[in-house]
Design a protein around this nucleic acid. Sequence first.
DNA 1: CGCGACGTTGATTTGCCTCAACGATTGTGG
DNA 2: CCACAATCGTTGAGGCAAATCAACGTCGCG
Lengths: 202, 202
Amino acid sequence: MKKDLLQASIEPLLEYFNGLIPLNEIENQLVIESFQPRLYRNRQYVLQEGDICTKFNFVVRGCLRMYKIDDKGNAHIIQFTTENGWLTDLGSFHGQKVSKLNIDALEDTMVLQISYDNLIALYKQAPKFDRIFRVLIENSFILLQERLLQNISSTAEERYLSFMHMYSHLSNRLPQTQIAAFLGITPEFLSRIRNNRSKPKA
Amino acid sequence: MKKDLLQASIEPLLEYFNGLIPLNEIENQLVIESFQPRLYRNRQYVLQEGDICTKFNFVVRGCLRMYKIDDKGNAHIIQFTTENGWLTDLGSFHGQKVSKLNIDALEDTMVLQISYDNLIALYKQAPKFDRIFRVLIENSFILLQERLLQNISSTAEERYLSFMHMYSHLSNRLPQTQIAAFLGITPEFLSRIRNNRSKPKA
DNA sequence: CGCGACGTTGATTTGCCTCAACGATTGTGG
DNA sequence: CCACAATCGTTGAGGCAAATCAACGTCGCG
């Protein structure tokens, strides 16, 4: 039943919000009414290029990736999102226009999602969520900026080490091809980086 | 006088806010009281690595850049900001911790700046600004994400063409060294890209 | 079982960097 | 107002980081 799914999964979201800014009972109730639980199977699309992104996703369990396919057919990963993380194509969502990105599941993944209309309504009913989402996006912005800086100023090996340090919980969970597509390098070159590291100077 | 400077420069900021979400008279007045005008000369620091970023800047006239100096002494530019744009080291500002970035002026530049404490107070006094800054940062986030995508998926030439297209108003205003530092390439290589373009296939 | 994703390794190519040198501007102090 | 320094853009030669293409072994899965 949908209801059971909601019961089982809404708790982490409420904890997440209350951890940022405590909610009152009415606001908690608004969250419960505004978000829908949904289960995506491994490899299932959450958003497909050409569609409009109508959902903002909170990952309860599992792992999503958002990526772009280039002219040559290669995927470039913009973001991984795991437990207690958020994911949407903000450009498409915010402007309600066609997306050039794809989102799919790398594992069986449970999300709580809010539609664009419901989020606008939520902002209207409880302005506290303007603040919550401001803080949430500020935090994402800071991370994104650090990653950009890495990309324009560091070598592939430095970026790999930084990734392993920052996302160590993901390193065993993802195949190397995905990590390479996130770092912006080929899987072959990532393999060489890893092997050169184990034999420091042979 | 400070007062004249304020009178002369506050108008673009009020227009900016009212263009996003109309303000009432009280809110307009809060803006006037919360922001301070300041003039930076060409090459003058707005923020220096090691300091805490205490200001959020709105550029009224001129041009600022935010950048990181790497171990070899090379600058990598994160952002240019011109008229009606915003700039701060959000990580440092938001967490009130030491910054690893620099901000300086590339031209004589007039800004309106709000201190961290005043911004927090502004949010408290008029929650509408939570929404305004949410939208403002969402827009910045979208742009930043597009730029990251470019960086992990495109060649230097493609990035250059994209820059010239997107920031055509800046192309004549900035020396090529600065554009190169923004694109993440050397000035020499940028020069080669430009010259190869003028003679398509000689 | 057999196919497709994955990781690895080798050979070769290429995009971009490094270093060095040079003229043209700009700007700045004497 | 001139002289000198600093910044800028350009070009050449050479080198390195990372991509490309190809081949092969392994594993998990339908």
